[in-house]
Each structure stands twice: as C-alpha cells, then as structure tokens.
Amino acid sequence: MDTVWVALALSLKVAGLATVLAALSGVATGFVLARGRFPGRDVLDTLLTLPMVLPPTVLGYYLLVLLGRQGALGGWLQAQWGINLIFSWQGAVIAAAVVAFPLVFKPARAAFEAVDGQLEQAAQVLGISRLAVFFRITLPLAWRGILAGILLAFARALGEFGATLMVAGSIPGKTQTLSIAVYEAVQAGQDDVANLLVGVISAVCICVLLAAGYLAPGRVAQR
C-alpha cells in the first residue's frame, strides 16, 4: 500500500511540474505562432506538434541523446554544474513536459487565433502597451481554451510511460511513477496492487477530462 501512495505522490509532483513547464512554453509559443507571420511558421508548427504523434520510445531516445552525458545539453550540464538528468525525477519531469507540450500549444494557438484582433488594435490605438493588451484583453478572452489544454496536458503527463521509463528508469520511490508502477506490478504478478494503481490513475484522469470538457470553448458557447 505504501508503494501506491509513494508512486501517486511522485506522479503528481512530476505531472504538476511538467504541466507548469508545458504551460509556460506552450502558451508563449502558441501566442507567437498565432500572431506572428514569418517564413517557416507551418514547419515550426509541425515540429512542435511531433511529440503528440511520435512513439514514446522514439521520443525517449531523442531525449536520451540530448540529455545523456554525451549529449549536447546533458554533457554541458554535467561539465558545468555536475547535473545528471538521466535516471532522476527531474529527467522524468522533462520527459513528461515534452510529451504534454503539444496539448497546451495547439489549444493555446487556436484560442489566441479566435480572439478578435480588432479589439487588440483598438486598445493599442488608445495607448495601451502590448504587454497590457495581452494580459487585459487577449488572455482573458482565450483563457478557457488554454486552461482546457493545460488540464489535458496534466492528464497526459500523469499517465506518461514510454519516454519517462527510457529517460528516468523505474527506481521505486525516486522515478517510479504510477504508470510505471502498474507495469512493474503486472510483471511481478501483483494483480491487487495493479488494480489499485489502475483505479487511482483512472479516477484522476476522468476528473481532469471532465473538467477539461466543461471548460472547452464550444461547450461554453452552447450553454
């Protein structure tokens, strides 16, 4: 039983931090692509959406190449700061954030594109700065779509398995999240533990999906 709650606490921590990273980067990138007009925008959109469709093992391999001690980022972190992200909960956060990123980025871009640009232009004509326009007009009008994407990203990060397993491994109490614990329990023939773990993660994900569906812009417009 202790294993279940330890895995749940670790999963919530990893998913929560991953969602914060995905939300900050996804909202910013979604706004830039929604408002920007520059060559290669569609290509960049495609590349940023790749984590949504790539097999988790492929994504995990890319992250290993990048974050490993011989990788560009991992080697630099190891040499400069003595930081090793492989087989750590921090590595699990990065893997979950990369997987969850498109689920924030795509809804955020769609929500920003749905905001009437004339409202923003009118505010700028009145002398309001672009930063103030974003926080006082654009974000309030787009927040429901963005929040729905963030909730979906949290659910995705909470259930992430493949990329997390490759980057962080399965170390009980350190990197073993709920989804990995389910796999380990099934492999060990511990059906009672597996059933409990599956029930917990399913209940959490159902609640998150219900909340995301409630906040979806189309659902709000129908009400």
Rank of each mutant, 00 (worst) to 15 (best):
A123L: 08
C207T: 13
G71M: 06
Y62D: 09
L54F: 11
Q187W: 00
Q124E: 15
Y214K: 12
G189S: 07
N84T: 11
L44Y: 03
A122M: 10
G159N: 06
W81Y: 15
A132Q: 13
G127Y: 08
L178R: 09
G30N: 02
T3N: 13
R35Q: 09
A142I: 09
Q118L: 14
R69D: 10
I180F: 11
F134G: 03
L209D: 11
R223D: 05
L59K: 11
V125C: 12
A108F: 04
N84F: 00
A185D: 00
G71L: 02
A108T: 05
G145W: 02
L215S: 06
K13W: 02
D42H: 07
L141I: 06
P172D: 04
S25T: 15
I86L: 12
K106Y: 01
W89H: 15
L8I: 04
P51L: 09
A221R: 15
L210E: 01
A153G: 11
F101G: 03
A148T: 03
V20T: 08
V43L: 15
A194N: 06
A181W: 07
Y214S: 08
Q187G: 04
A185L: 02
V98T: 14
L47P: 05
W81G: 03
M52F: 06
T3S: 15
A142S: 10
Q121G: 04
A95H: 12
V167I: 15
G218K: 13
T49D: 01
L47R: 00
L165W: 04
V65S: 12
L44N: 01
L63G: 06
Q187S: 13
F161I: 10
E113R: 14
Y214A: 12
G169S: 07
A168R: 03
A122T: 14
D2S: 14
A108I: 02
Q187I: 04
D45K: 11
A9K: 13
G82A: 06
R69G: 13
A212G: 04
A72Y: 10
I128E: 04
L158Y: 05
G82C: 11
L126E: 14
V4E: 05
G169T: 10
A114Q: 07
G30Q: 03
C205N: 13
G169Q: 05
I137D: 06
V99Q: 14
P140H: 09
G218Y: 04
V43H: 01
L66R: 11
D45P: 00
V98W: 07
R41Y: 00
R69K: 14
A221D: 09
A122E: 08
L119Y: 11
I146M: 01
W89T: 11
P217D: 07
T49M: 06
A72F: 14
L17T: 06
I171Y: 04
T19K: 00
G71K: 04
P55C: 08
G159E: 05
L165V: 14
G127R: 08
Q118I: 07
R69E: 10
G16C: 03
V6A: 09
F134D: 11
V167E: 05
T46P: 00
W76T: 13
V93E: 08
